[in-house]
């Protein structure tokens, strides 16, 4: 299990308080919550964009809070499918692979691209010209290609239609099970709960 402890984070009058939280260290975990419940803030704390004194995060026998962001080996997909605006989709995937020292990534990348039904013309376009759904799928390929130790997905399928959503979820699930890593999907879409191995809800800054 992955264990997170002692989150006490305040922004103005909102407080995120998670004394202890365990979720499986293999497979997809879903965290739901209404808008403003603190989901993205929690993700920021896990990634390391924000810091919280006293917080600990045990994963794979290490305290991930002590690691630098770049050493955590996180596969990240954000809500808007944030990528690099001056690069094409293909170049973004190449960057993600090279960033993890992977030179022979093409076969693996092709596998993910085919599973997500991304067209070859789409890959040659600058990311700023892609639709929201295309960006999220490309961002997912970038997240997977780096052999992450954990996937953090912030509303990562919100812009996908039902077929593409199914394919993406299936890919994430198979990836997590084969690589034996956890994935944490933060969403307000409760219909996805059935696809997960465990699920939690964030309510008024606490996990229930």
């Amino acid at each position: 299990m992955s264990v997170i402890k002692n989150i006490n984070y305040k922004i103005d009058k909102f407080k995120l308080s998670v004394p202890s939280w365990e979720f499986p260290d293999k497979g997809l975990t879903i965290l739901t919550g209404e808008s403003g419940s603190g989901k993205s803030t929690l993700l920021d704390l896990l990634i390391g964009f924000r810091s919280c004194k006293g917080m600990s995060w045990e994963l794979l026998g290490e305290d991930y809070c002590l690691k630098k962001i770049e050493d955590k080996n996180i596969g990240l997909v954000l809500q808007k499918g944030e990528l690099f605006p001056h690069l094409t989709a293909e170049q973004c995937i190449k960057f993600a692979a090279l960033a993890r020292g992977k030179k022979n990534y093409l076969d693996e990348a092709k596998e993910y691209i085919n599973e997500l039904c991304l067209k070859s013309e789409t890959l040659l376009q600058k990311t700023t010209t892609l639709s929201g759904g295309e960006r999220q799928r490309v961002a997912l390929v970038c997240a997977l290609i780096g052999d992450p130790k954990i996937l953090l997905l912030d509303e990562a399928f919100s812009a996908l239609d039902s077929d593409n959503k199914e394919r993406a979820l299936s890919l994430v699930n198979n990836f997590c099970l084969s690589k034996k890593i956890p994935a944490l999907l933060v969403t307000h879409d409760v219909s996805l709960i059935s696809k997960s191995v465990s699920n939690f809800k964030l309510l008024d800054g606490s996990i229930v």
Partner: peptide, 25 residues
């Protein structure tokens, strides 16, 4: 900043980040 943050999460070292992200931008 958001672009550089993403590059950091992806694990890019300083040289790769500069060559493919900071320098062209």
């Amino acid at each position: 900043a958001p672009t550089l943050k993403l590059a950091k999460v992806m694990g890019a070292n300083a040289f790769l980040k500069f060559k493919m992200i900071s320098f062209p931008l």
